[in-house]
Simulated scan of single mutants.
Amino acid sequence: MRIARILALRLLAILLLPTAAIAEDNCKDLLASGLYDSTVSLTKTQRASAEQAFYCSSSLEEAKSYYQKSKSSSGGGGGGVSYGPFSLSGSASSANAENLTQEQYNKWKSEKCGNKSAEDSAQEFYFVSQNLVNSTVANSWLQCMAKREGFSCWATPQDDDVFVRLNWKRNSLSKAKVTMSYVANGTSQYDGAQAGKLVTPEYELNPGTIEIPIKRTDLNASVRATINLVHDGFNYSCTVFAPSLVKTPSTPAADYASVEPKLVLKKTVGCDVKAMTVDCERNASATPTPGHVLCNATFSATAGPTQNASHKLLSSLQFAEVTVTVKTAQMFFGPGQWLIGDFLVTEVPAEIPSDIRKAKGCAI
C-alpha cells in the first residue's frame, strides 16, 4: 500500500512539472511585456541590463518572440529593442531576427552571459526588471509568481539590499520542512538564523509567500541564497540570485537625449466658498512610478486666487503635494472666495544624473 502511494505521488509530481514550467514562463513573459509598454520610459542602460538578462535566460524561440513583440510595440524597431543577439549579423531587422540561427545565438550567449546559468539569468531578469515596469505589470507578475505550484523563490531589490521571497504552494495538511539553507555575500535578517544561513534549522514553511531581508556584505559581489525543503518524502530546492551593485561607468548625455519628462498626474484642485460658510481645504499628491523620480510639480491657478485664498506646494524626488485653502468671508452678504488650479507632476528615470535632469527642465 505504501509503495503504491509513493508511486502515485511520484507520478503526480511528474505530471505537474510541465504545468509548473508553463506557469513560470507565463510569469516571465508577463514581466517582459512591461519593458516594451509605451507608458514606460527606459534609458538605454536600463533596457540593456534587463534585456541582456532576459536573452541569457531564454531559448532561441523565446528570444525571437520577445524581439518581434518589442519591435512591433516600438513602431518600427531601433533603439533599445535592437539590443541583444539580433545585432550579431548587422543591423537589427525583421529578417535578421527571423534568420538568427541556434549557433549564432549560442555564440552570443557565450560572449555576453559569461558563466551564468539560464536559471541565474532568469533570477537576474526578475531582480532588475520588476522596478522598471509600471506598477500594474509588477503587481500582476507578483500575483503570477505566488500562484506557481510547488516551491519557488525570487529576489526583490530594497535600496542596496535584497528581499528574498520564498513561495510554497501545495494542497496538503503537512508543512514543508527546511533541510538546508545558505547565503553567500549577504547576512540574513531572519531572527535566529545562524551566520551564512537563510533561516533557522528545520524551519517549517506554511503555504504562501514570506519575505526574508538580506543585508549585502559586499556591494561588488552578487548575492546567492539556496534553500532545500522536504515534504511528504519529496525534496525541493530553490536558488535566488541578485546581481552585484557595481557602479557602471556614467552614461553619456547623448544616451538620454530621447528621454523626456513623463506626466504622472494632472488634476484640478480647488475650493469655492460662500460668505459665512465653513472654510475649505483640498489637496492632491503624487509619487513616481518604480525606477523613476519626480521632475517637476507645479500648480497653476485657473480661477482666483481671491482674498483669503492660498495654496502650499511641497515636492521632493519621491513625493509631491499641493494643498489649497480658502477662508470664508466673515460678513453677511459678503463676496465668495475661491482658488482653483491645475496640479501637474512629471517624472524621469531615476538613473539620469542630476545635471542632465536639470538640463531637461527638472526643478526638483
Rank of each mutant, 00 (worst) to 15 (best):
residue 4 A to M: 06
residue 7 L to Y: 06
residue 7 L to R: 12
residue 9 L to K: 15
residue 13 A to V: 05
residue 15 L to D: 02
residue 16 L to R: 09
residue 17 L to S: 10
residue 21 A to E: 13
residue 21 A to S: 04
residue 25 D to A: 07
residue 27 C to E: 04
residue 27 C to K: 12
residue 27 C to G: 07
residue 28 K to R: 12
residue 29 D to K: 15
residue 32 A to G: 03
residue 35 L to Y: 00
residue 36 Y to P: 09
residue 36 Y to A: 05
residue 38 S to F: 02
residue 44 K to R: 03
residue 47 R to S: 07
residue 49 S to M: 01
residue 50 A to M: 04
residue 51 E to N: 13
residue 52 Q to L: 09
residue 54 F to Q: 01
residue 55 Y to V: 08
residue 56 C to I: 05
residue 72 S to P: 00
residue 73 S to V: 03
residue 81 V to Y: 07
residue 81 V to M: 12
residue 83 Y to C: 00
residue 84 G to F: 14
residue 87 S to F: 02
residue 89 S to K: 11
residue 91 S to E: 02
residue 95 A to H: 03
residue 97 A to G: 06
residue 99 N to K: 13
residue 109 K to C: 02
residue 109 K to E: 10
residue 110 S to E: 07
residue 112 K to D: 00
residue 121 S to M: 05
residue 130 Q to P: 01
residue 131 N to E: 03
residue 131 N to Y: 02
residue 132 L to S: 06
residue 132 L to K: 07
residue 135 S to I: 09
residue 137 V to I: 13
residue 138 A to M: 04
residue 140 S to I: 04
residue 140 S to W: 00
residue 141 W to T: 12
residue 142 L to W: 15
residue 148 R to P: 04
residue 148 R to C: 09
residue 153 C to W: 02
residue 154 W to Q: 03
residue 155 A to P: 00
residue 158 Q to M: 03
residue 165 R to M: 06
residue 170 R to T: 01
residue 170 R to M: 02
residue 171 N to L: 09
residue 171 N to D: 10
residue 178 V to P: 07
residue 179 T to M: 04
residue 180 M to P: 00
residue 186 G to F: 14
residue 187 T to L: 08
residue 190 Y to M: 10
residue 192 G to A: 11
residue 195 A to E: 13
residue 195 A to Y: 13
residue 196 G to W: 15
residue 196 G to D: 15
residue 197 K to N: 10
residue 198 L to T: 11
residue 202 E to H: 00
residue 203 Y to I: 00
residue 206 N to C: 00
residue 207 P to L: 02
residue 208 G to D: 13
residue 208 G to P: 15
residue 216 R to F: 00
residue 223 V to Q: 01
residue 223 V to I: 09
residue 231 H to C: 09
residue 235 N to V: 00
residue 238 C to E: 02
residue 239 T to R: 01
residue 239 T to S: 07
residue 243 P to K: 10
residue 251 T to W: 01
residue 253 A to S: 14
residue 253 A to G: 12
residue 254 A to R: 06
residue 255 D to N: 15
residue 258 S to V: 04
residue 260 E to Y: 12
residue 268 T to Y: 00
residue 270 G to R: 04
residue 270 G to A: 10
residue 277 T to G: 05
residue 288 P to T: 12
residue 288 P to G: 06
residue 291 G to S: 10
residue 299 F to L: 08
residue 300 S to G: 06
residue 300 S to L: 11
residue 301 A to R: 08
residue 302 T to K: 11
residue 303 A to D: 12
residue 304 G to L: 09
residue 304 G to S: 05
residue 305 P to H: 04
residue 306 T to V: 12
residue 307 Q to T: 09
residue 308 N to R: 14
residue 309 A to T: 02
residue 310 S to N: 08
residue 314 L to E: 05
residue 316 S to L: 07
residue 317 L to P: 14
residue 322 V to K: 14
residue 326 V to P: 03
residue 327 K to C: 07
residue 334 G to I: 05
residue 336 G to I: 08
residue 339 L to D: 07
residue 344 L to R: 09
residue 344 L to K: 08
residue 345 V to F: 05
residue 346 T to W: 06
residue 348 V to S: 03
residue 349 P to Y: 15
residue 354 S to N: 11
residue 354 S to Q: 12
residue 358 K to M: 04
residue 361 G to P: 15
residue 362 C to P: 09
